[in-house]
């Protein structure tokens, strides 16, 4: 960050951030993790598809996953249902996996 050096001039000094920054960053990270954890529980209970978990694990939401995969938003939302997701075509699964940056096989896993 920029701070006054010994010569009284503003200069770049190495910084790893301060506590406040860490608090707000962790707040955002925690919010993401919580969404992923809820989705995992829901997927376990059969209330949501594993896609919902993987979406949140990749720190995405429906809008972003839709843009990343090129699949319309309402279709993504439809695929968050477990029964719909179970019957998904290999081509669509491939697109989701590519957008999420994981292997197709891992789409079904709750790791």
């Amino acid at each position: 960050m920029y701070a006054r050096g010994a010569d009284g001039k503003l200069a770049l000094t190495p910084s790893r951030g301060w506590e406040v920054e860490e608090i707000v960053t962790l707040q955002a990270v925690k919010a993401c993790d919580e969404l992923a954890e809820t989705a995992r529980q829901r997927a376990k209970a059969g209330q949501a598809s594993t896609l919902e978990y993987h979406m949140h694990r990749a720190r995405m939401d429906v809008a972003l996953l839709s843009q990343a995969s090129g699949i319309w938003r309402w279709r993504v939302r439809w695929h968050l249902r477990p029964r719909v997701f179970a019957r998904l075509s290999p081509a669509l699964r491939q697109r989701y996996a590519a957008a999420l940056g994981i292997d197709v096989a891992r789409l079904d896993a709750l790791d």
Partner: peptide, 30 residues
């Protein structure tokens, strides 16, 4: 809390030089 935390996150230290770029601009003026 998410909302206000977000305002602060955008002025972060690493990435802006702190204080929402104000320090960096001060260095420029100097």
């Amino acid at each position: 809390k998410q909302y206000v935390g977000h305002i602060v996150r955008m002025q972060e230290e690493i990435g802006t030089g702190g204080g929402g770029f104000r320090y960096m601009y001060a260095a420029f003026l100097e």
